[in-house]
Each structure stands twice: as structure tokens, then as C-alpha cells.
Design a protein around this nucleic acid. Structure first.
Length: 416
RNA sequence: GUGAGUGUAGCCCAGUGGUCUAAGGCGCCAGGUUGUGGCCCUGGAGAUCGAGGGUUCAAAUCCCUCCACUCACCCCA
């Protein structure tokens, strides 16, 4: 028997209301903040991701779905959303548009990982990017937009974590002091952290092992080792966040897994427990466009996992708008009535009234039982008597009252 | 890639070597008189007990291998 591939799931009709709800709120907030939708291909040249995300990152080194097509091109299923948008920005000469260019996407993401709660091999991300401006007011706006989005969805107990990782001028110095600090305490580190010390010192900061906690807590923070420009940018951002009334906490241990981030990084977490505490995050990537072959162009973006949002909505028992059911169930008895039912269902639908036509030649009892189970309010019943009168029976399933009405009256009755 | 837990009908699950030709609940289908739902009653369909191998006179139950799912780690949305 075939099963969905590991880490990939079917989104069944019963779960669709959550998806449609989240997607609608995403589209709405983007409209509100002036972002235009962009859809990029699900696969791109492997090099695009390797160059942007960083060869040494876990995503590139072990999580990409890469393949070669029949002409030998190395392609990869999109493992994140920002690089393709930057590629499109460059490819279509968007630097000629009014800056910053604001784009959003809602798309599947692929990463070869072991699935667990809130983590899938194919998952969906909603993300947006503001490209072409380094004003910290834009950082604040991007963060605010994410915050309002979650608020609007109905999520409670949100936490905003903020940090600044500096730029290519100040980061090398910071990394050096971080390494020096850790080298002095190398004996107290867990074995994973000893590897990190060499490979990816920033990751030392968010080790989850208890033995490394005190060290990480007392480690030098990037936000305290910024160059004057970055310092000023960060300070300004914080004042804008205050201005907007967004409660943030500066986390000097906040680091993100992609290499392209500069200056501002942030994450938002609903305090709902579980291992996947972060539902969305983002930051600045002022060097990425240039890195990918464009002109030097500052930018900032954000992305959030739809599955994690839905998990949080469910944990917090947020009420979701239900999917509307058909208004009418068309039941019939006998062949002639059946023909009339077919025509009537078609007519109602053409009039914009959703209708479900009974199928399978079942008893009236069975037909009504189905209407009831599906939660359809009105049953239209057609039998020999109705046929003889040239009318139909309209039954309100919620009150169990029914009346004989002319077919022409039906639309008005069904629309209340 | 690592660790732990779990795998019995669509779903929840009973069953720890013979009485299992596998129980129950939900759901599904049908009936409870002639054209009427929701409650109740009755009946029915639906399971190679995750797969393969082994031990045994006998295995859903014990052993091995594999697979899948779940949770956690690494890492990330």
C-alpha cells in the first residue's frame, strides 16, 4: 500500500478551514502593508541556495532535495523562500522600481529532515521581503507586520525575541571574541559544542544542554559588539518598536541558521510549549542581493510556518470560521422525480445556490439521513405527489417543518 | 544522522503462547411496513493482527531483521 512520503502529509477537507483562514489573513495583512504577491518556481538551480544560505549550514549540507534533470542541470526543491525572491528581484531588474520593493509568498518548502511535531519535509511558509532600503523604520514595520498578523489570527501570549548580529565590518571581531571566550571554557563544553566552536561558533549560544547554559548566558553578545553604524541602526529599531508598542526582549543568544543575515534578526514564539517554539522569524540580509550578482541592495524579510501556526491555533483553541455547507440537499423518489432532481440541482447552482444532489438510488430515509449528517439545512424532496402538483417539498432540517412550494419560489426560500 | 516509544478494521482500542474461525466502541451501509433525518433497537460489510524470517505440537501474543508512525536531539518554519 502506498503512503504519503515520510514527512509529507495530506491536508484533508476537515483541516482546510484552518488553512484557508491562515492564508486569508496572510493575504489581507500583505494588502494592508502594500506587499505584492510573488510566486517563484518550486525548484531552482542548486547553486542559488548553496551560495545564499551558506555551504556549511545544515540546510545546504544535508537537507536539500537536489536532483539532476535530463539535461544535467543541478536543481533543488526550494528549502527556503528568500533566495528565490532575491533571484527574481535581480533577474527582473526590480531595482528600477520604486524602492523598497515589497513582495510576499505562500509556498511549499522542502527540507530532508526527520519529521516530528511541527516539522515536516514538505511544509508551507508564508513570507515577505522588503528589498532596497536599510532604514530601521522598515525593520520595525516588518516586525510589526508579523506581530499584527499573529494577533489578527487570534494567537495569544506571543513573545518577540530580538537581536542584532552586526555586519561584515563588525561581525569578524565579534566572532573572534566569542571564540576566545569559549576557548577558555572549552573543557566545560558538551561534545557537540566543541565541534561548534570550530565549525559554527554562533551556534554555541543556543545549545540546549544544561551544562552549556551558564556559559552561553555569560558569553559576549553580538549586540554589545556592534560597530557604530550597526549600533545606531539597532538603537533606532528599538525606539521604533517602542513607538509601535511592541514588547520585545533583546536575546543576545538569538542566532539564525542561515548565513546571510546581517544586523537585525528576530523570532516570534507563542508560549504554548513543545519543541518547536518558534513559529516565525526573519531578519536583515543586506549583502545577499550583491552576493547573488545584483547591485549592493539592503533588504529585510520574514517567514513563518503555516503548520506551526495551525498547531498553535489548535493548542490555544482559537475558533476558526467554518467551511460553508451546501444550502440544499435534493432528494428524490423514482426515476421521473430523479430526472427532475438532476435538473433542479443544476438550476439552483446556476442561480448561485449550492446544492447537493442525492445519488445512489437510496431510500428517502437514507437520503435524509445523509442530509442530516452533512449538516445541510434544507432538504428538497421530489416524489410522485410533487411531480403531479408541479411543485417540490421543502423541509427545514433544523425545525423538521416542511411545506410544498413552487419550484420558482425555491431560490428566495433557500436564501432565507 | 542519533535516541526513546509505538505498530490489531476508516478512527479509538481489548487481547501477553492454545477457548482468536480476533472482542468492544465510533464511523459506514441497511432494516424497524406503504415517501421523511437526528434518539433507540436489530442486522451487515470491513482485519493477510506493519512486513519477512525464526522458536514451538501451537504465535496477535516469544526471538531476530526490516519498514512505518510518534516524540526528542542535531537543526529549523
Amino acid at each position: 500500500m502506498y503512503q504519503a512520503p515520510r514527512g509529507a502529509v495530506d491536508i484533508l477537507p476537515g483541516e482546510q478551514p484552518y488553512w484557508r483562514y491562515v492564508e486569508q489573513q496572510a493575504v489581507d495583512i500583505c494588502q494592508l502593508y502594500g506587499y505584492g504577491r510573488i510566486d517563484t518556481p518550486v525548484f531552482e538551480s542548486t547553486g542559488l541556495f548553496a551560495r545564499s544560505i551558506g555551504e556549511e549550514t545544515d540546510i545546504v549540507s544535508k537537507e536539500m532535495y537536489s536532483f539532476e534533470d535530463k539535461s544535467g542541470n543541478r536543481l533543488t526543491l526550494r528549502p527556503e523562500g528568500t533566495a528565490p525572491v532575491c533571484r527574481a528581484y535581480i533577474e527582473h531588474g526590480m531595482h528600477n522600481q520604486a524602492q523598497p520593493v515589497k513582495l510576499y509568498y505562500l509556498t511549499p518548502i522542502f527540507r530532508y529532515e526527520r519529521p516530528q511535531a511541527g516539522r515536516y519535509r514538505q511544509h508551507y511558509q508564508f513570507g515577505y521581503e522588503a528589498i532596497g532600503d536599510n532604514d530601521p523604520v522598515l525593520d520595525a514595520e516588518v516586525i510589526e507586520m508579523a506581530w499584527r498578523f499573529y494577533e489578527k489570527l487570534g494567537l495569544k501570549n506571543l513573545k518577540l525575541l530580538l537581536n542584532s548580529t552586526g555586519c561584515k565590518k563588525c561581525r569578524p571581531g565579534y566572532l573572534k571574541s566569542l571564540k576566545n571566550y569559549y576557548k577558555e571554557h572549552a573543557d566545560d563544553l558538551c561534545k557537540d559544542c566543541r565541534v561548534r566552536l570550530e565549525k559554527n561558533p554562533l551556534r554555541l549560544l543556543d545549545c540546549k544542554r544544561t551544562q552549556c547554559q551558564p556559559l552561553a548566558a555569560a558569553a559576549p553578545g553580538s549586540a554589545n559588539n556592534l560597530c557604530p553604524d550597526c549600533e545606531e541602526h539597532f538603537k533606532s529599531l528599538k525606539s521604533y518598536l517602542d513607538l509601535l508598542g511592541l514588547p520585545f526582549s533583546v536575546e543576545h543568544r538569538l542566532v539564525r541558521g542561515l548565513d546571510y543575515y546581517t544586523r537585525t534578526v528576530f523570532e516570534i514564539q507563542p508560549q504554548t510549549g513543545g519543541a518547536q517554539s518558534t513559529i516565525g522569524g526573519g531578519g536583515r540580509y543586506d549583502d545577499l542581493i550583491e552576493e547573488l550578482g545584483g547591485k549592493p541592495t539592503p533588504a529585510i524579510g520574514f517567514a513563518t510556518g503555516i503548520e506551526r501556526i495551525i498547531l498553535s491555533l489548535q493548542k490555544q483553541k482559537v475558533a476558526i470560521p467554518p467551511t460553508p455547507m451546501p444550502q440544499a440537499y435534493i432528494a428524490s423518489l423514482g426515476e421521473k422525480a430523479g430526472d427532475k432532481a438532476v435538473r433542479l440541482a443544476s438550476k439552483l447552482r446556476q442561480d448561485g445556490i449550492s446544492a447537493l444532489l442525492a445519488s445512489g438510488a437510496r431510500s428517502l430515509k437514507a437520503q435524509l439521513r445523509q442530509a442530516d449528517k452533512l449538516g445541510i439545512r434544507y432538504a428538497v424532496i421530489i416524489g410522485d405527489e410533487e411531480l403531479a402538483q408541479g411543485k417540490v417539498m421543502l423541509r427545514d432540517m433544523t425545525t423538521a417543518k416542511q411545506e410544498t412550494v413552487a419550484e420558482a419560489e425555491l431560490p428566495a426560500k433557500l436564501l432565507y
